[in-house]
Amino acid sequence: MSFSENLKAIRKERNISQEDLAEIMGVSRQAVSKWEQGSGYPEMEKLLVLSRKLNVSLDYLMLGESSTNEINNEVTNNIVVPNGKITIKSADGKSIFNCYKVSASHVMFKAKEDEPKYCLNGVNSGAFWGENSIILGWYKDEESAKKEMNEIAEAMNKGVSVYELKYAVKVKTKRLRIKIDNE
């Protein structure tokens, strides 16, 4: 299913009107209508808010799946922790998240030169309305995201219970866009 179909189905499943969703998102009802018709997409920041507010993973929202092996013909990594959970500490040290599943995915829209191209998502539980996921870190390229995933897998195999992100870039929000912070 496409993003537009998924959004409409999730919204209807939760008995939320387009007007209500627009109010939650801080956009017009027409913007929500365009998203559901497939004639427009929200910016990355709005996708993250949608994911959080609707309590579904970005994979589920964008693809109708809780995990995916392929996005735009690019293979993504998906690790399910076999022994329960691993605690991931964000690169900025401001947040800690217990995960039973970690996946790296390409950002939905063509990233500009100063924007991250991949993100690492952590899932900590399945809930009634879907999985509870959070973006753990942003990556400038696929190689950095894969390197992080490999080190997380290695840490899990060694029985390490806490892992601190090493390859994520620092980001800042500028005009509702996620930008790499080079400062």
Rank of each mutant, 00 (worst) to 15 (best):
V102D: 00
N15K: 13
W129Q: 12
T68V: 14
V56T: 00
I178W: 01
E143C: 07
E148W: 02
G159N: 07
A145S: 05
A127E: 09
N182I: 15
E143I: 12
N55L: 10
F128R: 10
Y139T: 03
M156W: 05
V102L: 08
E148S: 04
F97L: 02
C119E: 06
C119L: 14
E113M: 10
G137S: 03
K117M: 12
A155S: 10
G93D: 04
N78L: 11
S39K: 11
N182A: 11
S2I: 09
E13F: 13
Y100H: 08
G130R: 00
M44C: 07
A155V: 06
L50I: 06
S57R: 00
G40C: 07
S125H: 05
V75G: 07
V75L: 12
E115C: 02
A22M: 04
I88A: 01
A9S: 13
N55H: 09
E115V: 04
M1N: 11
F3A: 01
A31C: 07
N15D: 15
E142Q: 13
R177I: 05
E23K: 13
K94S: 10
V56I: 02
K179G: 04
V32I: 09
A145L: 02
A9L: 11
S95G: 10
N150F: 15
V123Y: 05
I86A: 00
S95Q: 14
E143W: 11
E43Y: 09
N121Y: 10
N69G: 15
I10G: 00
N73E: 12
Q30D: 08
A145C: 09
F128A: 11
N124Q: 05
S2Q: 11
I152C: 04
E36V: 05
I178V: 15
E131W: 00
Y60S: 02
L48I: 13
I24R: 08
N157M: 15
I152T: 03
S133D: 00
N150A: 15
A127W: 01
E70T: 15
L176V: 10
R175S: 14
E45P: 02
H106V: 14
K101F: 01
E43T: 08
R175Y: 13
I79G: 02
S66Y: 15
K174F: 12
W129K: 14
K89I: 15
S51K: 04
R175E: 15
S103W: 06
E13A: 15
R29D: 03
D59W: 03
L21S: 02
K172D: 04
Y163K: 03
E113F: 11
S33T: 14
P42L: 05
C119D: 07
S103P: 00
K94W: 08
K172F: 07
Q30K: 13
M44N: 07
M1P: 10
N132Y: 06
E142D: 08
D92I: 03
E148Y: 01
E113W: 10
S125Y: 03
K94Y: 10
S125D: 01
K110F: 11
S33V: 09
E13L: 14
V123M: 07
E143F: 13
S28D: 05
K117Y: 08
Y167T: 06
S51M: 05
Q37I: 07
K147M: 12
A145Y: 00
Q30Y: 11
Y167K: 09
